[in-house]
């Protein structure tokens, strides 16, 4: 898989209300790599791969213990405060301020 493209651009439209933080984070990344975006930029029903969380250590540890581990798949069940994501069979509720700081890799296009 030499080229990775976002599967469906229309599904990943950024909402105007979202902060530009995630976009600026992704600017300098190589184009061959999927772009990490904030969890809050996904729509309901979309799946993505957990990338990183810019949070305090304790919050990161808690998310990790709940199953949000490196490269795990998560699905957006509900948008808006709280964001609800499903990781395997665990549903996790996230306050908006927390969800904004979680970065995910959107699904990639098949070659």
């Amino acid at each position: 898989m030499n080229t990775t493209v976002i599967e469906n651009q229309s599904q990943l439209q950024l909402r105007e209300t979202d902060p530009p933080m995630a976009i600026s984070d992704s600017v300098n990344q190589p184009s061959a790599e999927p772009i990490a975006i904030s969890l809050t930029q996904l729509n309901r029903g979309q799946s993505a791969t957990f990338h990183r969380a810019d949070l305090r250590c304790e919050d990161c540890d808690m998310l990790n213990a709940m199953g949000m581990t490196d490269r795990c798949q998560l699905k957006i069940c509900k948008i808006g405060d709280p964001w609800i994501v499903q990781v395997k069979s665990t549903r996790i509720g996230l306050a908006k301020s927390l969800a904004q700081r979680i970065f995910v890799l959107p699904p990639m296009l098949r070659p």
Binding site: R56, D59, M62, L63, M66, P82, I84, T90, R91, I92, G93, L94, A95, K96, S97, L98
Partner: peptide, 10 residues
Amino acid sequence: SRPMVLELPS
């Protein structure tokens, strides 16, 4: 205050 994260049981 710290933001909230909670498992939502079935």
